[in-house]
Design a protein around this nucleic acid. Structure first.
Lengths: 271, 271
DNA sequence: CGTGTTTATCGTCAGGAAGACGACTATGAT
DNA sequence: ATCATAGTCGTCTTCCTGACGATAAACACG
C-alpha cells in the first residue's frame, strides 16, 4: 500500500458489532456478551471487535460470528457448497458518533445475523460470559432515549429501573443498534424469505409461522398463513417427510425455496 | 479524548460518499464530480470526503451535500423549522474492501440523498467539474461485474466499450455504491412517501407520477395512479391552487402529507 | 377403547385493492 | 373551430386477504 500523508485525515478505529437474532421458546432473542473491560465493565453488550488491517468488513463480521457462536456465515451472494449450519449475515448500518466510545474515535459497522435456535452460546474471546437475551427484555419499549417514560411513573413501577432504559441497559449505543437490527428483521421477513433463516434446514409450516409470530410479536391465523406460504411461488419446497415435533397431527416438512423476494409479500398485521 | 494504545488496532481513514439522486427530464440522474487527483484522475466519481475528527457521520454527509449542491440536509428525525430546499438524506451502506483505494485503507460510509430538480450543479471543493448524469448511462446494465456481457458481443456493439463497464465507468467502487443507492430508492418509494422528496414543495399528481416512472423506469396508468395516491391516507394534502405547468388541463396542487409509511404501498409493476 | 386436546390442512364467503379501460373536462396550439 | 395534451371520475373484473367452519391425524388421559 503506497504511503500517504497521515496528517491529511484523522485516524479512526473501525469495529464490527453483531446483532445475532434467533427465536427461542417463542421469543425473539439476541446474543449478548458480558463486558470484561473498562468502559461499561460488567454490562451486557453486542459481540464485536476490531476489523483487521487487511480484512474486509463482511469477513470481519463473519469471523466474529464464528468466534462467538460457531456459526458459519452464509453470504447471500455466494451460497456455500455444504449446507452447514450457515446463518444469514448482512450489513446493518454504521454508527460513528464522536462520543460513542469514551476511549477514542470508533466507527462501528453493525451487521445483522439470523440463525436457527442454537444450543447454549459458547463464550469466546474477551467475553466473560454470553447468553441469549429476549429482545423485549433489552428493549423494554423505553430502553431508547426519546420514548415517553410517563407511563412507568404513572403505574407505580415495580422493580429497579435505572436512568438509561431499564436494569440491563446495553453498553455504548448498542440498544440503538439492536433496535435497528430488530426493525430490519421485522420488515425484511415481510417481503423476503428471510424468515427461513430462523428455521432448521427442514421445517414445518407451523414452525415458520411461530417464527413470524415471535419476530412480529403477533399471533397469526394458522389457516390463512398456511394458504399464504404454500401459495407463494418459490418460498417453500416440500421435502416429502412429515414430523410430529410439536404434537398434534403430523405436518409436512419443507425446505426453503430459491425465491429470495416474496411475491406477494407477507403482510404484517396492522397496529 | 483519553489516550489509547494505537498499536492495538489498525488505523483507518473514514470518508462519506454521496449518492445524490434527482429526476431531470424524465430520467433518474445522480451527481458526479470529475476527479482531479491521482487515482482515477479524470474519471467521474461520487462526491464525498473525509469525516472530520469530531464530526458525526450524518453531519459529514450533510456538510458534503451543502458543499457540492447547496442543499440543506433534511434529517428525517428532526424536521427543520424552515421549509427550505431541504433534501432527504439517509445512510446507505458502508464499503471497506481492503483494496478499494490503492493509497490506503479507507472505509466509506455512503449516504443517499434525494432532491428535487436543481439548477446546474456548482462545482465545489476539489472537483474540477460536476454534472447530473443519468444513472442509466452510468449503470448500463453491465457496468457492474457479474453481469453477462454476451448480449453486447452478439449485437455487434456500437461505441467504445471499455473493459470495466462502459465508457464512463465511475472511479473506485462507486458504480456498486450507486447501484445500491438506486436500488434503495427504487424500493423505498414503494412503501414510503419518499417520492415526494424528488418534487418541489408543491406538486401535482402528474409530477409525482413522473417521478415514479423515472425512478422505476416504467410507465404507469395515470387514472389508477391518481386513484391510488389520492386514496392513500396521509400521503398528499391538497393545497388549494391549480397549475398548468405541464400543459393540458390544470391540475390540483398538493403538498406531502405527514405519513412516512404508505399503507397500502405503491406497487412496482412486475417484470 | 372412547373422549378430549392439539396441531395441521382444506374450503367457503365477503370485502377490498388493483389493473384495464371508457368517458368527460379544461387548458394551449394550429 | 379543431386538435393535442393532461387531468379526473367511474366501471368492471380479477385477485388477495381476513374471518371462520370443518375435517384429519396424532397423543394423553380416563
Amino acid at each position: 500500500m503506497p504511503p500517504y500523508d497521515p496528517s491529511a485525515y484523522p485516524p479512526f478505529a473501525v469495529t464490527v458489532d453483531l446483532v445475532v437474532l434467533t427465536v427461542r421458546r417463542h421469543a425473539l432473542c439476541t446474543l449478548v456478551v458480558r463486558r470484561g473491560e473498562s468502559p461499561y465493565q460488567g454490562r451486557w453488550a453486542l459481540p464485536g471487535g476490531f476489523v483487521r488491517a487487511e480484512e474486509d468488513l463482511g469477513a470481519a463480521a463473519a469471523r466474529e460470528l464464528v468466534e462467538e457462536t460457531g456459526l458459519c456465515a452464509h453470504d447471500p451472494a455466494a451460497p456455500p457448497p455444504v449446507p452447514s449450519n450457515g446463518a444469514h449475515l448482512e450489513q446493518l448500518a454504521t454508527y460513528g458518533a464522536p462520543d460513542r466510545d469514551p476511549r477514542m474515535r470508533v466507527v462501528s459497522v453493525a451487521h445483522l445475523a439470523l440463525a436457527p435456535d442454537l444450543p447454549a452460546p459458547r463464550a469466546g474471546g474477551d467475553a466473560n460470559s454470553a447468553r441469549w437475551a429476549p429482545v423485549e427484555e433489552l428493549l423494554g419499549e423505553d430502553a431508547l432515549a426519546g420514548k415517553a417514560e410517563a407511563a412507568a411513573a404513572a403505574a407505580g413501577e415495580a422493580g429497579s429501573e435505572e436512568k438509561e432504559g431499564g436494569p440491563e441497559a446495553l453498553a455504548f449505543d448498542h440498544a440503538r443498534i439492536l433496535a435497528d437490527g430488530v426493525e430490519r428483521a421485522r420488515s425484511k421477513i415481510e417481503y423476503s424469505s428471510l424468515a427461513t433463516a430462523f428455521c432448521p434446514p427442514e421445517f414445518t409450516v407451523g414452525e415458520l409461522r411461530r417464527v413470524y409470530e415471535a419476530v412480529w410479536g403477533v399471533s397469526l391465523d394458522p389457516r390463512n398463513f398456511h394458504r399464504k406460504v404454500t401459495g407463494t411461488p418459490g418460498f417453500l419446497v416440500p421435502v416429502g417427510g412429515t414430523t410430529t415435533r410439536q404434537g398434534g397431527r403430523p405436518a409436512q416438512l419443507f425446505r426453503a425455496g430459491g425465491a429470495t423476494l416474496l411475491n406477494p409479500p407477507m403482510l404484517r398485521p396492522e397496529v
